[in-house]
Design a protein around this nucleic acid. Structure first.
Lengths: 215, 215
DNA sequence: AAAAAAATTGAACAAACGGTCAATTTTTTT
DNA sequence: AAAAAAATTGACCGTTTGTTCAATTTTTTT
């Protein structure tokens, strides 16, 4: 039959991109499950259904592979949360920001964990990325919040500590989910747990920042 | 002089305890700096000024050593924070709790990091410990807070999420201190940074829980 | 369809690791 | 001071791990 190879046709031109994606997605999962150092290239290869040498064909070293994984994650981490919209005011912006961060924890648990592992291990790749990011990004958020403060929409706040706290509270539901599950006495978090987390964190942030009801 | 060996006398009977302490303290430092899996028994031995075989004489395996380190840390984690005192009311209790947690982050950074590493890696030793701890501990805190709520001293809160948030916010200053330093654009955190963190976290928690000014 | 480029893969290797052991020394007990 | 117990240590070993490579197959280009 002349059509025997047809199903693969659409993909055949993208072998490289396809395999890289497979390896990257598999790696993220294995890194998150086993830890960065404990993960072996053999584990990744097995779980991807590839020979180990084939993994090394696309990523020369384990370090290269980890950095490729981290690059994907950092890009996601940055772009999956909306920027502040000055006109809307602090209440809607902070509420949405927290909501999106919690969604990120729930929907990209593995990515969050790998990010946290790299951060706690002080991987220079991640640190350099954050250094570049924060100088530009943070000053913008700071200006926005200052605007709101001047308009009397909220109290003055230590912006750096505010973001540190929000990140800590939201990411903890992904990074330390084992601890959270023990606290909540559940085998797995339900949608309602995430909603409660959103509501309570939002409540603390809005009240702590003295955000006015209207706005 | 018959007192030539005197200086060592107080210690000579405690060779075992002394060496175990040395190994444990060194291990905590190396584990925190290098990560759990990356740390080798050779590194610990070198930094302790001992032959590797001597380390293995006191702790048969690396796993045994890690668990001994974790046991010390968990004991510290549990006992370095005061219990709630019902009579004092929520304002003073929560303020003190947060303050002590931040102090813990600053004074036992290595321990906090090793704890976080073990938790993120879902080390069963830590998970089992927390399981045992939370069932008894949490229900007591829950009852205390309920008392305050009934007295009208604060609003009803989801207690589990409250503790998850407080732990996340306070531990982040130890566990992810590299990220915090980048945010704050400093090579090392100063005392004033920790005080600002305390103040802001307390402000959010008290406001978020609707804690009344008096009490 | 021939040539070139890209992809696949089994096999092998050097380095590093956790762990063991037997021989020796130091300390404690009798 | 003799005997027993505890502690010290250099040398060694079996595995595992990241990485390389040459040989082959598949895909793309000419």
């Amino acid at each position: 039959m002349s059509d025997a190879k047809r199903p693969k046709d659409q993909l055949k031109a993208h072998i490289r991109a396809q395999n890289q994606t497979l390896i990257l997605e598999t790696s993220e999962r294995v890194f998150a499950r086993q830890g960065l150092a404990k993960t072996t290239t053999q584990m990744i290869a097995d779980e991807a259904g590839l020979p180990k040498a084939n993994v090394h064909y696309y990523y020369r070293s384990k370090k290269d592979l980890l950095e490729a994984v981290l690059e994907r994650i950092l890009e996601m981490w940055l772009h999956s949360v909306s920027e502040f919209n000055v006109e809307e005011g602090p209440k809607q912006n902070l509420t949405r920001y927290i909501s999106e961060k919690i969604d990120q924890s729930r929907d990209n648990k593995n990515a969050s964990k790998v990010f946290a592992m790299a951060l706690i291990g002080e991987e220079s790749f991640v640190l350099d990325y954050l250094r570049r990011l924060f100088v530009t990004e943070l000053s913008r958020e700071k200006a926005t919040i200052e605007t709101w403060v001047n308009k009397g929409l909220m109290d003055p706040v230590p912006v750096e500590h505010l973001f540190i706290s929000i990140w800590a509270m939201t990411q903890t539901y992904a990074d330390f989910d084992a601890q959270v599950r023990i606290m909540l006495q559940k085998d797995a978090l339900e949608e309602s747990d995430y909603e409660e987390a959103k509501a309570f964190i939002t409540r603390m942030v809005l009240a702590g920042c003295g955000v006015k009801a209207l706005s």
